[in-house]
């Protein structure tokens, strides 16, 4: 490790996080299931194919337009399971609470968790709560883990992506990232920004059943955004990726917010979107099916996997130029100069 101490950048989902995981974690934790670095681990138990995943949630503020920390905790883990084609079955829920937290806030978070879990049809079946002295945590930290069942015929993973495959994005990008960033005191913007937090297992199940075998890879572009996630996919699939700038779905307000703060939506977090890598001959039908599904009505084909150096992602710009897309290295920073 080049750094002696943990920086915020290590939690950014970009290169700094990857470096921490590969240089420190994987040095000691050597299960091949972990080493594949997928959104969840898939393994067979007594003839059943299971998926397992865990994720922790820290967000300031706890409540924001479009959602709250509880929604993220339920949706995030459900989505991690769904990204391997699994049908989520059960969730665990663990809290670390800061002394002095308003019970009222905790109750609001719990109500939200209950609602999301009911709507998703994925019950919370075990849990834990710890309280730490004031200042030792920031209000509420949540961990959720989940298990799901992968139907027999499905095999969805980064290793399935192949040359010629099309890349689809299930909706507009950057909504969550910019919403959270503009809640910070010095960077506030008013207006129509909302987090996109949403459970995607319904859409995944619909696509996998309607187009058996055509869906090769699914990834949710959370921290690090679409750009960093695609760089990872290209690296792991040992192929290159090309994107078309004009087809990237971005809402007008996210675009405006990004212009003001000097941010690039390609690098902002999403909490209710997925990248779909699929057979080219069914891509149009798949994008069509997504657009007719409530969780994907802004879906678009944004690029494809091509021959080229492993990990190389390029973007065709509106004026006919081309540029390289590299992964985020630390947290996205607003710029002014």
């Amino acid at each position: 490790m080049s750094e002696q101490y943990i920086l915020l950048d290590h939690g950014s989902g970009g290169l700094a996080s990857q470096q921490l995981i590969s240089e420190l974690f994987l040095k000691y934790l050597t299960s091949p299931l972990l080493a594949s670095l997928e959104d969840s681990a898939v393994f067979t138990v007594s003839g059943n194919c299971l998926a397992m995943s865990t994720d922790s949630y820290v967000v300031d503020p706890l409540f924001f337009p479009g959602g709250d920390i509880g929604m993220l905790a339920v949706h995030g883990t459900i989505n991690d399971l769904a990204m391997r084609g699994a049908r989520p079955l059960y969730l665990s829920l663990a809290f670390i609470l800061e002394e002095g937290l308003a019970i009222n806030d905790l109750e609001r978070v719990l109500q939200s968790i209950a609602k999301c879990s009911n709507e998703a049809g994925v019950p919370i079946v075990t849990g834990d709560t710890k309280v730490v002295p004031r200042g030792k945590a920031d209000k509420i930290f949540i961990n959720t883990s989940g298990i799901g069942l992968v139907p027999d015929e499905r095999s969805i993973s980064v290793s399935q992506a192949r040359k010629g495959d099309k890349i689809l994005l299930s909706g507009s990008m950057g909504d969550h990232g910019i919403t959270i960033m503009t809640r910070r005191a010095g960077l506030s913007l008013e207006g129509e920004l909302r987090s996109d937090t949403m459970a995607l297992h319904g859409l995944v199940d619909h696509l996998c059943t309607t187009f058996p075998g055509a869906i090769h890879t699914l990834r949710d572009p959370t921290r690090g955004g679409v750009a960093s996630t695609l760089c990872e996919i290209a690296e792991q699939a040992k192929a290159a990726i090309t994107l078309d700038e004009e087809s990237l779905p971005i809402s007008a307000s996210v675009r405006a917010g990004c212009e003001i703060l000097g941010l690039d939506p390609l690098y902002l977090a999403n909490e209710g979107k997925m990248l779909v890598i699929c057979s080219p001959n069914q891509a149009n039908d798949i994008v069509n099916a997504m657009q007719h599904h409530p969780q994907g009505h802004e879906a678009a084909i944004i690029g494809e996997i091509i021959d080229g150096p492993a990990g190389r992602v390029t973007l065709h710009t509106g004026l006919g130029g081309e540029r390289l897309v590299t992964p985020l290295h630390g947290q996205p920073l607003p710029r002014i100069c």
Binding site: Y5, I6, L7, L8, D9, R184, A185, G186, L187, I260, L261, G262, G330, L333, P334, R335, I336, C337
Partner: peptide, 27 residues
């Protein structure tokens, strides 16, 4: 935000923040 990671001979503001310095980004 532009200044956060610029290294001087004693590290950057982002590294100073990891050691307790109060650094706030503003627009």
């Amino acid at each position: 935000g532009d200044l956060m990671r610029v290294p001087g001979s004693n590290g950057s503001l982002s590294q100073a923040a990891a050691h307790g310095a109060q650094v706030e980004m503003v627009y």
